[in-house]
Design a protein around this nucleic acid. Structure first.
Lengths: 144, 144
DNA sequence: TTTCATGCAAAGGTTTTGCATACGC
DNA sequence: GCGTATGCAAAACCTTTGCATGAAA
C-alpha cells in the first residue's frame, strides 16, 4: 500500500470517488504534516488558508472516506476528538507514547506483537486484523 | 490496590470525598457488572432502578472521581462514548479484542509487555506508567 | 447530462457546567 | 453548621445529516 499522492488519487478514482479540489487539498495537508496526529479541526484550519470556503462537514466526510479506503487511520488519544494519521503497512507498526503531562504524542516503532497476535488468535478464535498499542506516562520534559 | 467495596470507600474518605448514597450505588453497579465495559449511560440505566431520582451529571461526576483516585479506568473503544472498568493491578494487565463486526469486546490476559516497556523507556526517556493494547478483528461469530 | 460532492445550517449524541437546594460529616 | 454533592436544565463540544446548489466525469 503505497503512500504517494498519485497512488492515493488513483485508488480514489478506482473506487469511483471524484477527485475534487477539496479532497486534493485535504490530502496535501496530510502529506505536509505526516508527523503529526491531526484532528478534523486541525485539518480544517490548515486547509482553510488555501481553500477558504471549505466546510467542516466536507473535512469530516473526506476523512471518513480516506479512512474507509485504507489511506488514513482514525485514532483516539483520549482527548475527546478523533485524530488521523496515515495507515501503517503490515510490517511497519508503530506505537504511541502519550504524555500525561503535556499531551504530546511520541511514536515508537516495533514489530514484536505478531507472535502475540497468533497466540491470541489460537486461544480465542479471534481473527485479528490490526492492533493498537498505547503507552501512558511522562515525557522527558514533564519528568521534572 | 485492592478492589473491595470497603477499601474503595475508605480511599474516598481518606481523600475527603463524601460517601453519598449515589456514589455507593454507582460503585455497587460496577461490582455487580465487573465483566462488562460500562458507559456512563449504562451505569445511569442500572442505577436508576435503585435510585430513580439520580441525575446523569452525578454519574459523570462520580465516574470522573473514581477514575481520578485510580479505582476505575476510562477507556475508548471507538464507538463515540467513554467506557469504564476497574483499573488493573500492575501485574494483571489484560488486552481488549474488539470485534469490527458486532462491536463485542473480549479480554485476553497477558504480561508480555513489561520488557517492551523498559526497552522503550531506555530508548526514548519516556517514563511509562501504563499501557493499553487493543486488537481489532472479527470474533468467532462474525467470521462467517 | 448524470451522478456525486459541497456548503450551510440544523440536528444528534455525549459530556460539562451553573446554580439553587439538599445532605454528609 | 460548613462545605461539598446533587439534580435540573442549559451549554459546550464534536460529529453527522438534510437539502439545494454546484461541479466532476
Amino acid at each position: 500500500m503505497s503512500k504517494t499522492y498519485e497512488s492515493i488519487c488513483h485508488r480514489m478514482s478506482e473506487k469511483d470517488y471524484k477527485l475534487t479540489p477539496q479532497r486534493r487539498v485535504i490530502l496535501h495537508a496530510f502529506m505536509d504534516n505526516s508527523e503529526r496526529h491531526l484532528s478534523a479541526e486541525d485539518i480544517y484550519g490548515i486547509v482553510k488558508s488555501q481553500h477558504p470556503e471549505i466546510g467542516l462537514a466536507t473535512v469530516y466526510r473526506t476523512l471518513e472516506l480516506l479512512a474507509e479506503i485504507g489511506v488514513l487511520q482514525k485514532m483516539n488519544f483520549g482527548d475527546g476528538r478523533s485524530r488521523y494519521e496515515f495507515a501503517q503497512d503490515e510490517e511497519h507498526h508503530h506505537h504511541h507514547l502519550i504524555c500525561l503531562g503535556c499531551g504530546s504524542v511520541l511514536e515508537f516503532t516495533d514489530d514484536l506483537l505478531e507472535s502475540l497476535e497468533s497466540t491470541i488468535a489460537g486461544k480465542t478464535g479471534f481473527k485479528i486484523l490490526d492492533h493498537q498499542l498505547k503507552f501512558y506516562g511522562y515525557c522527558k520534559k514533564c519528568q521534572v
